[in-house]
Design a protein around this nucleic acid. Structure first.
Length: 663
RNA sequence: GCCGGAAUAGCUCAGCUGGUAGAGCAACGCAUUCGUAAUGCGUAGGUCGUCAGUUCGAAUCUGACUUCCGGCACCA
C-alpha cells in the first residue's frame, strides 16, 4: 500500500505499486501529457518507474530545469539515431547536455556538412513525429561491453569498460535503436517538439588533442517552439553585440590581414576610448599607491632562462631575434623587468610594500585557431602590476587590490563578479607552510571584502595560490579579467631580498596582478557589454553639433569650439543633409548627445539637446547645457546619466584639464 | 594546431550548370537649405583573398597557401 506524498504536501494511497505516469494521470490529464520523468525521494526516474513503497514524488516536466535537461538528453539520442540511420558506419561516442542544448560526438570517416545537418534534422523530425516509445533495459557490464563490441561500437565499449563493475548498465532505445545511458529519458519521441541542430565541430576523443578526432554535432532543444524561438532570438541579439561587428561599424579597431592575425590596430575612435581607459587607470593606480613603470619589449634570452619562462613558457614565446651573436626575446610577460628594477639596488623593509604597475605590451604565440577578435590576440597590453611585500603584508595588499579592482570595474558598469580561490597544486614551488599561510591570507582578504568565492583546490599556479575574478556583463556572460597571483618562485630565482628591521636579509613575496586583464580584451568586453552605446565619459564622440542648414554653420562651429575647449569630444556636422539624416547617422554611431542647431537656437544662444537614451530633451541655453554636463555630473541632464564615476570623482573634468594642457 | 565552412567595391550581398562583373548603403560632386532616425541627381570605386593548375576561355572547376567564421584543443 504505497503512500505517495506530492510536492504540495498532499497524500495519495495506492493498492499496488503505481508507475510515475499513472500517478501523473491520476492528478490530471494535463500533467500526464507533460510528465517527462519523476523524482522519487530525490532520485530521477523514468515515467514507467513503479513506486513500490511510501515515497515522495514530484512529476518532472519541461518546466523544471531537470525536465529540460532530460528533454535535451533525449534529443541528443534522437540525433544519434538519425545519424546512425543516415550514415551507416558512424559510431556513437558521447552525447551530453550542455547549456541551452546538447551535442553528440560520433566517430565517422568524414565531418558532417551543413547539408548533412539539414538531412539529419529532417530525419529527427520524422522520428519525433512517429512518437516512438522509449524502452530501457539493464545489462551486466560485461554483456554490455560485448554487445557494443559486437556491433562495432568500439568507443561505447570502451566507455562501459570504464564504469565500475558493480554499477548496473542501462540501455535506452527507441524504434530498434539503442544506446548506453544512465537515463532517465522522456517516455516517447513525440515529446521532443522544439529542437534545432546548430552546428558541427571537430572534437577530440577524451578531450585530448593527441587522440583521434571525432565529429561533433551541436543542437538545442526546448519545451516548446516559443522557447526555441526566443532562444534563437537571444542568440541573434548577442550577435548584434559582437565587438567585431560594432568595432567595424563604429570604426574603432581592425585586424589587418597584411600584418597578420591577432594583431590589433586601434583606429582614432578606438584609440580615444583606450586613452580614456588608460588615463582613468593611471589615475586610480596613482591614488592607490602604485608607481608607474615603463620597461622594454625585448630582452636577452638569458633573462628568460633565469625567470624560467624559456622553459615552461616556451610554447607561447616567439623565437628570439639574433644580434651580434646574442638572442633577444620578445617579451610574453612583464614580470622579469619589474624584478630587475627591484633588484637594481638593496631594498629596505621600510620601502615595502612596493607597488609597481605598467601598461605592458606583450606578445604571445597563440595557435591560429585560437584567435578571436579582440578577445584572443597575439599582441596585447596587460594592465599589469607587481607588488613586492613581506609575507605579513600579503593580506592587506590583497585587500587593497580587491578594493581597487571593484572600484575600477564599478566605473565601467560591472557590479557582479564570480571569484575563485585556487590553492596549492601537487607540484609546487615553495614550502608547504608558506603556501598554507599565504592561502589563508588570500581567503581572509576575500572574507573581509565580503566577496563570495569558490575554492579550486589544487588549481593554483606552481609558484603560488591565486584569486581569479570573472565579471558578468549586461547580458549575463562571464569574462575572466582579473587575476591576483602570489609568487614564491621568481623572488627565489632572482635572489630578491630586503633588509629587515633586525638587519637580516629576507626574501620578499611577489604578487602579480592584472585587473582588466588586457586592454584589447577588456575593450572587446566593454563594446559587447554596452553594445557600443558607451557611457558619456567613454564615448569616442560625446557630443555632435548638427547644423540644420548652412545658415547655422558659424554658430555650430562656435558651439562645438566652446565645447571642445571645455574638454569634450565633439563632432560638428555641417553637411548639406537634412536634420533627420544627421540625427540618424549620429544615432547609428551611438553618439550619446546630439545638439540640434537651427535659427531659433542661434537667435537665443541655445542648443536643442537630444540624448541617445531619452530622445529630444528640448532647447536650453548653451551655458546651461555646459553647466549641466560639466558640473554636478552630467546626470542632471535626463538620459545622460552614466557620466559620473563612482566615488564622487568626476573623471571627465580632469580629462578636460589635461586636454587643455595639451593645447 | 585539428574538424567543418567562408572569402566578389569601404559595408551587406547578387552573379544558374565556365564565355573576363552588378545592386543597395557608404564615399565623392552638383543641386537642395530642410526642425528630431534616410532629399534628389550624378561620379568614382573591383588584378572577384594569394599563387599554381585544368581549359580556346576561370569570379565560377582542382590544388596549395593566407585570413576570417563556428567549434575542439590551447589560454586565463
Amino acid at each position: 500500500m504505497p503512500r505517495i506524498t506530492l510536492p504540495d504536501g498532499s497524500l495519495r494511497r495506492y493498492d499496488q505499486a503505481p508507475s510515475v505516469a499513472e500517478v501523473a494521470a491520476d492528478i490530471g490529464p494535463g500533467l500526464a501529457r507533460a510528465a517527462l520523468a519523476g523524482r522519487v525521494d530525490g532520485r530521477l526516474v523514468d515515467t514507467d518507474f513503479r513506486i513500490s513503497g511510501d515515497a515522495e514524488l514530484a512529476i518532472v516536466t519541461a518546466r523544471d530545469a531537470e525536465g529540460l535537461e532530460i528533454l535535451r538528453h533525449s534529443t541528443a539520442h534522437l540525433l544519434a539515431q538519425a545519424v546512425q540511420e543516415l550514415f551507416p558506419g558512424a559510431q556513437v561516442v558521447i552525447g551530453p547536455v550542455i547549456e541551452d542544448g546538447f551535442y553528440y560526438d560520433f566517430a565517422y570517416e568524414r565531418g558532417f556538412t551543413p547539408q548533412d545537418l539539414k538531412r539529419i534534422e529532417a530525419r529527427m523530425k520524422e522520428l519525433a513525429r512517429a512518437d516512438l516509445p522509449l524502452s530501457h533495459e539493464t545489462m551486466a557490464r560485461d554483456d554490455a561491453v560485448e554487445h557494443f563490441r559486437s556491433i562495432g561500437e568500439r568507443y561505447k565499449a570502451e566507455i562501459i569498460a570504464g564504469i565500475p563493475k558493480d554499477e548496473p548498465i542501462t540501455l535506452y532505445g527507441q524504434g530498434g535503436w539503442k544506446d548506453l545511458c544512465r537515463g532517465p529519458h522522456v517516455p516517447s519521441t513525440g515529446r521532443l517538439k522544439a529542437f534545432k541542430l546548430t552546428g558541427t565541430s571537430g572534437a577530440f576523443w577524451r578531450g585530448d588533442s593527441s587522440n583521434e578526432q571525432l565529429r561533433r554535432i551541436y543542437g538545442t532543444a526546448w519545451a516548446d517552439s516559443k522557447s526555441l524561438k526566443s532562444y534563437l532570438k537571444r542568440l541573434e541579439e548577442a550577435a548584434k553585440r559582437d565587438h567585431r561587428r560594432i568595432g567595424a561599424d563604429l570604426d574603432l579597431f581592425s585586424i589587418q590581414e597584411e600584418a597578420g592575425g591577432g594583431l590589433v590596430f586601434w583606429h582614432p575612435k578606438g584609440a580615444r576610448i583606450r586613452r580614456v581607459i588608460e588615463d582613468f587607470w593611471r589615475d586610480r593606480h596613482q591614488r592607490a599607491g602604485y608607481e608607474l613603470l615603463f620597461t622594454p619589449h625585448i630582452a636577452l634570452e638569458g633573462l628568460w632562462q633565469r625567470s624560467g619562462h624559456a622553459g615552461f613558457y616556451r610554447e607561447s614565446m616567439y623565437s628570439p631575434v639574433e644580434d651580434e651573436g646574442r638572442g633577444y626575446q620578445l617579451r610574453p610577460m612583464n614580470c622579469p623587468f619589474h624584478i630587475l628594477i627591484y633588484r637594481d639596488r638593496l631594498r629596505s623593509h621600510r620601502e615595502l610594500p612596493m607597488r609597481w604597475a605598467e601598461l605592458g605590451t606583450v606578445y604571445r604565440r597563440e595557435m591560429s585557431g585560437a584567435l578571436h577578435g579582440l578577445m584572443r590576440v597575439r599582441g596585447f597590453t596587460q594592465d599589469d602590476a607587481h607588488v613586492f611585500c613581506a609575507e605579513e603584508q600579503i593580506e592587506d595588499e590583497i585587500l587593497r587590490i580587491l578594493d581597487l579592482a571593484l572600484e575600477v570595474f564599478g566605473a565601467f558598469g560591472f557590479e557582479e563578479f564570480s571569484t575563485v580561490l585556487a590553492t596549492r597544486p601537487e607540484k609546487a614551488a615553495g614550502a608547504e607552510a608558506i603556501w598554507e599561510r599565504a592561502t589563508r591570507a588570500l581567503e581572509s582578504a576575500l572574507k573581509r571584502k565580503e566577496m563570495k568565492f569558490a575554492l579550486d583546490p589544487g588549481g593554483g599556479a606552481f609558484y603560488g595560490p591565486k584569486i581569479d575574478i570573472k565579471i558578468r556583463d549586461a547580458i549575463g556572460r562571464q569574462w575572466q579579467c582579473s587575476t591576483v597571483q602570489l609568487d614564491f618562485n621568481l623572488p627565489e630565482r632572482f635572489g630578491l631580498e630586503y633588509v629587515a628591521a633586525d638587519g637580516s636579509r629576507r626574501r620578499p613575496i611577489m604578487i602579480h596582478r592584472a585587473l582588466l586583464g588586457s586592454l584589447e580584451r577588456f575593450f572587446g568586453i566593454l563594446i559587447e557589454h554596452y553594445a557600443g552605446r558607451f557611457p558619456f565619459w567613454l564615448a569616442p564622440v560625446q557630443i555632435a553639433a548638427l547644423a540644420i542648414t548652412e545658415r547655422q554653420e558659424a554658430y555650430a562651429r562656435r558651439v562645438s569650439g566652446t565645447l571642445k575647449k571645455a574638454g569634450f569630444r565633439v563632432e560638428c556636422d555641417l553637411r548639406s543633409e537634412t536634420i533627420g539624416y544627421k540625427i540618424r547617422h549620429h544615432t547609428l554611431q551611438r553618439v550619446p548627445c546630439l545638439l540640434v542647431l537651427g535659427d531659433r537656437e542661434e537667435r537665443e544662444g541655445a542648443v536643442a539637446v537630444r540624448s541617445l537614451e531619452a530622445g529630444d530633451l528640448g532647447s536650453m541655453p548653451l551655458d546651461d547645457f555646459m553647466a549641466r554636463v560639466t558640473a554636478e555630473g552630467l546626470g542632471s541632464l535626463q538620459g545622460i546619466s552614466e557620466n559620473q564615476l563612482p566615488g564622487g570623482h568626476q573623471y571627465r573634468s580632469k580629462e578636460a584639464d589635461s586636454s587643455q594642457r595639451r593645447n
